[in-house]
Structures are given as C-alpha cells and as structure tokens.
Nucleic acid binder design. Structure first.
Lengths: 346, 346
DNA sequence: GTGAAAGCGCTAACAG
DNA sequence: CTGTTAGCGCTTTCAC
C-alpha cells in the first residue's frame, strides 16, 4: 500500500535485464550493449528512478562529497571561493560540504572528524589555527586527500599559496615611482600569517628604495573598525602626513575612505590609495580605487585540480605546492605625490 | 594485511557483547545496562571507532543532513544566516549542506533533486524564482520537510516571512516626523518581491501623511552600481533636491554615501539617511548610519524550530507561517529637515 | 556482454 | 536487558 521507494531492482525488472546490468548501464561501465543501456534509461524515465546515494556510498566507498572548511563563511573572498568551487566540483560530480572553523581549534577538529565520519572523498581547508598540534597531527595521520589554502602549515598535504610578497612589493614600488615617500600600510589583524608576509614585503620594498623602516606608518588594526577612522584622521591631520595608503581589508578600506572624506582630503590629489583586496565597491567608487586582486578563478582551478589529481591519482605522490599570483588593477585613486610634499622631501 | 576499517562488529567483539547491544549503547537507546554501555564506550576508545555514516543513513533512512539552498552565498545577510543556522543545527546533530540557486531555475531544480537523492531530512530555501512552476510543483509533491525564507510563494511548505511593510512604514514616518517631505527611496533590483512590498509601504506612509506619490523619488537600481552614484549626484544637485534617503542594499548605500561626500552635502545637516539592512560599516561610519535590521537570531530560531518540529512531529499538520520583525537602530545619520527646506514647504 | 550472488556497516524487529 | 537475524539499495566480483 505504502508507495515503496523505486529502486534499481524495479528498474531492472521493467527493463527486462538483471540488477547488475542495470547498475552497469547507469554507471557507464564498459561492458554494456547499447540496447541494454537504452532499455534501462527508458525504464528510469518511466519510473522516475533516482539512485540512493547512501547505498552507493556504502557499497562503493566513494561519497562524491568534498569537505570544505573555511575560517568563516561571511568573509567575502571565502564566500566567492566557495561558490566558485562548488560550481566547479559539481560539474565533476561532487558536492561541496561547507563548514566554518571560526578560528576555534576545537571546532576545527570536530569538523575534520565529521568529514572523516561522513567519508569525504577529499577536503579543502583554511585552518585558522596554524599552530595547533592536534590539527596538524590529524591531517598528517589522515589518508584523505586535502588541499590547504593560503596557510603556512608544515604538512604533507597539498597547498595552494597566494603570492603575497611580490604583489605587495609591486604596489609599494608603484607608489614610490609616483614620488611618494610617506606611505602608510594598514592591515586588519585577522589573517595572521599572510599579513606578516605583507608587512615584511612592504618594508623590504621601502628599504630597497633607500627608505628606512617607516614604523610609524605601519598599523595593524588590532581593535575595532571605528578606531581605524580615528587613526587615519590622526595621521592626515598630524605632522608630516602620509601621501599614500596601502590598505588591507574591506572594512579598513571603508574607514580610510570615510576618514579621507571627513578631513576634506581629495583622492588622488592629496592622498593616493591602493587596496589589497578588490571588493565590489572599489571599482564603482568615485574615484575608482586601485586594487590588488587575487584571481578567484586561478585559485579555484589550482585547488580543484590538485585535489582531483590526488583523489584519482597517486595518493602517495609527494606533496604539491601551487602558487597563485595577484593582479594589480591600476585605477584613478593612485596619482603622483602632491608638489608640496615632493619639494619638502627632496 | 590491509588495515581494515574498524566496524561495530569489532567493537562488540572487544566489549564482549553482541552487535545489537553495541548499536543500542551507541545510540543511547533505553534498554541498555550501564555496564554494557561502559564496556562498549571503552572498546570504542581503544579502537578509535567512528560509525559509518553511509551505513546508518541506508539503514535508518535518516541522513541527519539539512539541505540549504540560498540564492547566493556571497550575499552578506545570507552568509550570516547560513553560519548561524549551521551552528544551531550542528548542535542538534544535523549537518547543513549549502547550495546556491543563483536565480537560475534549472540550477535550483537540480539542487532540489540533489537534496532528494541524498536523502536530506529537511531543507531551507530562498528560491530566486518565485514563479517557476516546476519548482513549485516539485516542492508541493515532495514529502520532505521544508522552510521557505522571505518569499511570497504559494506553497504547502512552512514559511518564515520578514515583516517588511511595517518596518518601512516606520522609518518613513520617522523621517516625516523630523519634517522631511522630499524623501527618496532607492532599492536594488535583486529581491523582487520584498522590494515591491517595501515600495508600497513607503508610498502608503507618504500618502497617509498627505503627500502625493513621489514617483520622481522612487528609484529602482536596475543597472550598475556606478549609475547609482550619478543618479544621487543628479538628485542632490537638481531642483528641489531630497532632504532624506531611504536606501536598500549594501552597494546602493555605499554609492549614496560616496555621492553625498562628492557633492559636499553633510550628513545629517543637509541630508538624512536611513539604510534598509545593517552592514558592518553602517555602525562604524562617521556619522553612524541609522538602519533597519532584521534580527538574524530571530530568523534562525524560527526557521530551525519550524523545521525540526516538522521533522520530528506531525508531517501532515497544516503549513505554518512565522513573521520576523525588524529593529530600527536610530543613529546620527538622521536629523531634522534643514531650515531652508522646512520654510520652503510650509 | 550478462546474470547470480555476495556483501558494504549498520539499525530494527523479534525472540528470548 | 540482550543476542540473533534480516535486510536498507547498491556495486562488484565471479561465473557463464
């Protein structure tokens, strides 16, 4: 009486073939005559058959699912990455399962265990905790293919790194070439490691240009976004104000733009601005804000390729590393140093 | 030789109990002696046993997974909602599977089918296509518990609606009470239905205050965000400019702030601004932008409750509707109408 | 190329 | 309270 689930047995019966043949037909295995294939397909259409995923996983030991643990889903870059990877992996027959780590080691570990329990075929991770031993141990002792994104972790897993240093050097030189000497660097505090590399690259570029480490102009936004506004206002109104800003983080950038407008400084006439990261509004802002952007498509491509290669290929091959480059979008927010300052310095 | 997976049989053997008892112990069923429970737990710890999710799903017909289809993962509100729901559902033993519809009916349908195929225990949806018959048919013919978020869909499923109209009326009156008469409403074009309701509520509030439908001040941002900037500049520099803006959409708000600064209009001295939606920067902007915010926690709570009730309880109970309220955050961006205009009107 | 049969690891029904 | 047994729906040998 109860309308039983349509299973492969029903399909096979209607098609007049055996259970095994029906299965082979569905999975596009070699040894199937085109006639059988057609008959099965017709039966499927008639019955509206949908295979049971659970049964498939149990039997084949392939879940066709990839676990994705990001530090937070609300980070715009991560959200875009997730969306793009989901689309790409779906096309390959995989489903992406999203979990957030929230920089909490316990939570992250629980997520990894969940991935294992649910038999993920692979995983993509941005662990917030780069040092927590339990997580590193878990990863290294796990057989599961995995790709780590933009984290300096000592691991046997494959890694996709963003090439921060050269990118930051490049924009620093860009500003130096425009005559700027007082350049401020503002970075948000969240992504610890990448920012450390950014700061270093910035200082190196300055030093290479004969400018002593400008400690007074490197700011880590340790507290709230509100304070960034005050800080920038302070800088602009203070003695020997910066003529250019390199800004990392969406909220940081907003605060800088806001502060600039508040003190009546014009962009790029009075201050030049380059953003690390390219949020939507950067392009449409008046004037448009020059930005360093990591190519989402590149990251997605490299990550998915690495992962699928590992899943399908040799699991004992040694760890791979891919390096993703940044693009610099030169836009109107970037201009030559104001004359007064140029004279003052030289 | 190959280190076989530890299964429940191994656990039972080590604990010296039967397979059935081990299963019952794990699942916390009634009829288990505390001794058995302990022995099993010890065996689990020793062996490092993790149950096979696939086998459980196949046998129990419960996947402990909820499908979540949002129109896009990159929408900040949705990202926050997802993150909060994920946490809440995880605590209840469920995993949230995220898929994006991208306002593409085919894609949405494919996602729904995937949810069915993978035996989701329930789903949470924001269909972009409120009219597509195939999707409505699929939903109505499906037995799967589901909650629809903020969509005016005729469906048998449970629904959580955001109470847009009263909220918009309220902020319109807020501005009217401050003496504003020329109030512009700018909405992004994406969420068709909610915005239709917002516009209507706005016009009603104006009419109730004896002000004719201000068609010249209601703008749907049909094209790019760049045009919003131009449009607002046009309005502010034109004849009889608005003294207040009600703005919906993060990018729209950014454009308005940008345009306001560009023409040198001060907030709130020259123009007042209220945002529909409360992005991070609204609070930290100088001055802070007054905003209508929907309480994420409320939505999450109502949605999850509705869903779990449906999953655990009576599936044939008639459809439920929950209504979520908005909070108005009065902030400094909102002030009395400028004297010149007040005189001009009265 | 195809059919028959053997489980994947677990829960649920039943008998004790 | 516990052990035994029968599958869940499918893929994958293994014969033929």
């Amino acid at each position: 009486m109860s309308k039983k689930r349509v299973d492969l047995r029903d399909v096979a019966a209607l098609a007049g073939v055996s259970l095994g043949s029906a299965s082979r037909a569905i999975n596009g295995v070699e040894n199937v005559s085109s006639e059988t294939r057609e008959r099965v397909q017709r039966a499927i259409d008639i019955l509206g058959y949908r295979p049971s995923h659970a049964a498939r996983v149990l039997r084949s030991r392939l879940s066709k699912t990839i676990g994705c643990m990001l530090s937070e889903a609300t980070n715009p870059l991560y959200a875009r990455l997730f969306q793009a990877m989901e689309a790409r992996l779906r096309a390959e027959g995989y489903v992406l399962l999203l979990a957030t780590g929230l920089n909490d080691a316990d939570r992250e570990l629980e997520n990894l265990r969940l991935f294992a329990e649910r038999g993920m075929d692979g995983m993509i991770l941005t662990p917030g905790n780069e040092r927590d031993r339990r997580i590193l141990d878990f990863l290294d002792s796990s057989e599961m293919p995995a790709v780590i994104l933009d984290r300096d972790i000592e691991t046997k897993k494959d890694v996709v790194m963003f090439n921060h240093a050269p990118a930051v050097k490049r924009i620093t030189r860009e500003l130096l070439d425009l005559g700027h000497r007082r350049i401020a660097l503002l970075v948000s505090h969240v992504d610890v490691r990448p920012n450390r590399r950014r700061i270093e690259a910035f200082k190196t570029a300055m030093r290479e240009h004969g400018i002593a480490s400008p400690n007074d102009l490197v700011r880590l936004q340790t507290t709230s976004t509100a304070s960034t506004f005050d800080e920038v206002v302070g800088l602009l109104k203070g003695q020997d104000p910066p003529t250019a800003f390199i800004v990392q983080g969406t909220n940081t950038l907003l605060s800088v733009l806001n502060a600039t407008a508040a003190v009546g400084a014009r962009i790029p006439d009075d201050v030049s601005i380059i953003s690390i990261g390219d949020p939507d509004f950067a392009r449409t802002h008046v004037p448009p804000i020059a930005a360093l952007k990591v190519k989402t498509e590149d990251i997605v491509e490299r990550t998915v390729d690495l992962l699928l290669t590992r899943i399908k290929g040799d699991r004992s091959a040694r760890p791979q590393r891919a390096l993703v480059q940044f693009d610099f979008e030169r836009r109107a927010s970037c201009g030559p140093v104001p004359q007064s300052h140029a004279r003052g310095i030289q």
